[in-house]
Structures are given as structure tokens and as C-alpha cells.
Design a protein around this nucleic acid. Sequence first.
RNA 1: GGGCGGUUCGUAUAGCGGCAAUUACAUCGCGCUGUAGACGCGACGGCCUUUCGGCCUCCGGGGGUUCGAGUCCCUCACCGCCCA
Length: 395
Amino acid sequence: MITKESSDSQIVELLTRGVEDVIDKANLESLLKSKNKLRVKLGIDPTSPNIHIGRAVVLWKLRAFQDMGHKAVFIVGDFTGQVGDTSDKDSERPQLSEKQIKENLKTYFEQAFKILDKKKTEVYYNSKWLKKLGFLEIVRLANLFGLHEFISREVIARRMKEGKRVSFLEAMYPLMQGYDSVAVKADVELGGTDQRFNLLAGRTIQPLYKQASQNILMTTLMEGTDGRKMSSSWGNVINITDEPNMMFGKVMSIPDSLIKKYYLLATRTSIVEIERVTTELANPRDQKLLLAQAIASLYHGNKSAMLAKDAFVAQFAKGQLPTEIQEKKLTPGKYKLSDLLVLTSLVTSKSEARRLIEQKGIKVNQQPAVDTEYILDGKQEYLLQVGKRKFVKIK
RNA sequence: GGGCGGUUCGUAUAGCGGCAAUUACAUCGCGCUGUAGACGCGACGGCCUUUCGGCCUCCGGGGGUUCGAGUCCCUCACCGCCCA
């Protein structure tokens, strides 16, 4: 959907929904109203092969710019990724090898273009220009920044206080990101709030190259399913490539307090509709069912989202068996229950199997198993179940 | 280059020489329910037909002292801080 002229209300939503801060707001607003086609930059470092819905917030924002007729400029930080950014980390980031970066990128585009309009996106690799920068040029850039600004950044200050190492290299990261803005002549740059410092660097550097300072739009950081910061290393992420059922279940597990935030940041549901759902439905669970469906349909389509919802309700609300259960074939013979559980990789060790049996966590044909030494012959079918979520059918 | 400190479960931590090793978070199971949420309880190295038991492996690597070593000594590796 492209409109030649963006309506005022569209602009308002663009500048506020899921947005934490805009610099310089007045300037950006008048640019948006002027019908100029803006170059909107988004840089990503290929540090992980998966895009989660938190990372997707900024991609959807870029998509919104595209839908209003602006140009998306997507920068792959193949160079900066090798260096490692520390904006949102408590420690230095591992520097990625070229090989890892290539590996990560393979699936990255496929995922990003589930969100972005490919035809209206320019893609660049920042090694193209950063690799060639000479020392003199770097010195000119470095001269624009004071070290005190860098060390007073919250994360950096904390690490220094805690006695952790802060490398010289890290201080140079903003220079690189800022130079990217020059290279692509960015009018606007998008990023998370954790990127504030790096985003501002572009504004500082561009005038040196006779360019107007870019505007900055910072999107809100999204909490993970457990309410903490969404981070792959904490396992609280919802990846956009997650299977519909998985995606649905993960959304259902978020704290009630995050429902509205998820709705605003992770769906394209209209604000009016969100308002309606969150006020009219009294039970947060029902709100979440709709939310989960909205998110799943964004990446898997309406039909899959519906099916995921039905499966979820059947399995968890009504306690029915899942429709699809993994099957394993065994050679006929006698098996001890604990051995069988290990054999089917439902558990990783016999000790674990024994513990689970003691805690009534194992069911055979829907009946709790009581005895570790329970013997099954491999002749008939059995349904093994661990907890509420792991099933295997033995044939 | 000099001085000091660190390296223990996925992460962060505790550990006067008797330890399969503390606590928190995460994880897993059970109960309850409104869901895989919240709350409560429990488990969280492996193997064993003696299971309020037995055996094996484990605290950065190597060596030593000792009946006995995360715990003491030496050494190597890595990391950090301060001084230059």
C-alpha cells in the first residue's frame, strides 16, 4: 500500500508507535510532510543468524517508511560485525570471523525480507567503504569525539567501575557506524534506544562531509517472554522463523503486563483495534490469544495462525493430546522404561529418567508411571509422555 | 617492565584441608490455575535389580605436600586492576 501523500495521522503513528525518541523531531516531521523521498538507513550486524521479534520492531518501522514511499537503505555490518559492538552488552562482544558472518547472513536476508519490501530496499555491505578508510581519515573522524563522552556512557562506565576491560577498539565503533551514514547519505537512521550513542555519531560526522545531519528515530526495546530483556542467550526470544505452534505458545507465556506493548511493537494491528481488544476483553488470556494469533499470522499467514490457536487450546486449555506426535520404531524385545526414555531421547540420562518417574513426570499411555523398572515389550504401541509437552509414540 | 587479584554447574556467586561442593537466576517435573503466565512444592554430575545404599567422575592445565586437596605449595595458560 503506497500513498503519495502521507496523511498527518500516518505521520503521527510513524513517529510515535513503538518509538522511544526522535532527534530532531520537528525537522523530521517537516521533511515527512514535504513529500521528499527520504533515505532511511538501518544497519545490522550479522551477529546471530536469527531475527527475533524484538529485532523486528525496527525492521517493521523501516517497512512503514517504505509504505509511505521512502527509500530503505539496509546496511549489513560485515565490517563492523568483525569488530564487535558493545552498546547493549556487559562485556566485549566476540569478534566474528568472516566465515561466521557469511554463515549468519545466509538466512538473514530471507528473514529480513519477510518484513521489508525487497524491491524498495538498497542493500550495502559496509566493508565496501570502511575497509578503504586511511589512517588520516580515521584521525579526522576521531578528532570529532571526546573520550569523556565515550567513557560516560552508562554501560562503559559500569564496566569500568566493575573493573572489566574496555578496549580502545570499542571507542572506535561509533566512528564506523557514523561513517556509514555518510557513505549512504542517510536522511534518517533507525535503531534501538541502546544505539543512541552510535546513532548520534552519524549526526556529528556528516557535517564534516558537507551533509546535513541525519534525523534519528529510536524504537522501543522489547522485553522477552519472561519480562527480561529479549536476548538469545537467555532463551526468552521469539524468533520470526519459529514454527507457528511454538510462536503461539511463547506469546501465550508472556506476563500479562506486556500484552499492550507486544501488540504495539510486534503486530501491525491498528491502534484502534488494539485499544478495543485490550479494553473489551476482560480476561488477559483472551487478549493474549488474539495477540498470539496476530503475531503468528504476520509471519505464517492467517490460516497457520488459526491452526496454531486451535492446537494450543486443545493441548493446553483442554489437555488433549497434540495432533502430531513423533513416532519411533523399535526392534521387538523387552525394554526397561528408563532405558526406553533415554533411547527415544526424551531424557538425557537414566538418572534423569529415574528422577522424573519419582516426580510423576512420566506417563505411559496417559497413565503416570510409578516404577523405574517397568518393562515394556516392543511389540505393541505405546505413548510415552514427559511433562505436558514432550510426546513420543513407540511402535 | 613492576606490584596485586582472579579462573568452581548455562550465567552470577559461596566454599577455617574430610565435598558431589553454597546461594540466586535460568532449566525441568508436580500441584494449583486463566496459559507453557503468576503462585506453591520438588529436582537439577553419571552409572548401579543393597536406592535414608553402593561405585565412578568433577572445581583452568600440569606437578607436589598430606591418610585425605576447589581449599596449602610450585609451575604453566588465560583474564583483570594499579604503577611505569
